[in-house]
Nucleic acid binder design. Structure first.
Lengths: 224, 224
DNA sequence: CCAAAAGTGTTGACTTTACACCCATGC
DNA sequence: GCATGGGTGTAAAGTCAACACTTTTGG
């Protein structure tokens, strides 16, 4: 059983919702292969304690984004994915709050930027496929998990929450049904604060209650 | 960035339902580490075209089981999983029909056997965790996918189908509601055949219709 | 008083759950 | 005719989907 040398990398699909759009962080490659194409932030598994640690480290190194929710997506290892060598890539999904965003490119890249998931440039390697996989995952996940709250600050309005669902699902949802269902679910803590941002009625702020969420059944409870 | 040598392996959780119990294939290790403990069938990624191919090859080599449904589960890569070296393991779920079963151990193992998922022996490495992950996955998956039909022969009775659900979910389900829901879903093709296996009413045989299944929404439709 | 976004209820269709007896067969 | 597993219906409760107007605020 000949074992050819294999390299292990991590690539991260880092998502955020900005102005009602689902966006993703890409870095522009400075070198071959795929020089000048946009790619997912990624790099080699090194002396990290875990693959997830590697994903967090690489994401921070390449984009300056840290302290975020991370989960493993899928591992790609087909022959020929990388023209140089056999590369096995564990892909990760990162969910960012608007707060977290202060992108800064590393020396290895000639740029780092947000791109709308629905209007991506041509991507390096098989990264298009990885983004599609991530997009599918977050669509499912938002219906049965608390993933949406990883895309929001600690305090948010019901409209903010609805915008996250609409951006992720890619379609409008009925606002009366949306509010009814979320308020009934018990996972929202109503705060004694409101926004104050224009010449119209202020919106109430809410927080997320992990304790209440933990008591929900683990089937889709937030589907719209 | 020092890159220590990393090995990539695949481990497979191969499941089948036998006499109403969910069971899994384990091999008994002939060597250190974990000599004489039971472990998942697994081995190194070699010159396979894909990781999934490697999982299929290794499963066949170690257990003589082939031609089965395979899907990737999760990739484990924490430091210290294997005392010898840094090992990154892509784990796979295999679903077997009772037909497929003609276990035969390879020279590397001192045994291969079916074990009930609910009564496993002590396992090598972190394989217990991998089995738990697989078990969770199949529990979810059976509710929204056609996974159950990968655990059944081409022709089966409604009772067979219900037994698969009960074994996977680990609890009884209401048999009137079960039949009603499955028959209404349209994914079963009623055959002009019955079983003939005792001094009692014969059961009608059914087949699975992939075409009808493909038209279902991709949310849980087989939850009980 | 106007513009803008926040917030609110009801109805009908459908789905889910709980529950107990008759049917067909071989011996 | 009996033992065994196969097969069937209904009603009440709950959930989902569709739909339009009133409220609050600043200027």
């Amino acid at each position: 059983m000949a074992i050819e040398p294999i390299k292990v990398t991590v690539d991260t699909v880092a998502l955020a919702v900005q102005e009602g759009q689902l966006e993703i962080v890409l870095v522009k490659r400075k070198r071959e292969p795929f020089k000048n194409l946009w790619a997912l932030p990624g790099g080699f598994l090194s002396d990290d304690d875990s693959i997830e640690d590697a994903a967090a480290r690489v994401l921070f190194e390449e984009t300056n984004v840290g302290g975020v929710y991370l989960e493993q997506l899928y591992t790609f290892g087909d022959r020929g994915r990388d023209p140089r060598a056999r590369v096995v890539t564990a892909s990760y999904l990162a969910l960012l709050r608007q707060d977290d965003l202060e992108l800064r490119a590393s020396a290895d890249a000639s740029g780092v930027a947000w791109w709308p998931v629905l209007a991506l440039p041509q991507l390096a390697f098989d990264h298009k496929r990885i983004v599609e996989y991530a997009h599918q995952r977050i669509k499912y996940k938002i219906e049965y998990s608390a993933a949406a709250f990883n895309l929001l600050p600690d305090k948010f309005t019901l409209r903010d929450l609805q915008s996250v669902y609409e951006a992720v699902l890619g379609r409008p949802v009925d606002n009366r049904n949306f509010r009814k269902k979320f308020l009934k679910s018990g996972v929202l803590r109503e705060l004694d604060e409101t926004t104050q941002q224009g010449s119209f009625r202020p919106a109430r702020l809410y927080g997320f209650s992990q304790e209440e969420f933990d008591q929900l059944p683990d089937r889709p409870v937030f589907s719209f």
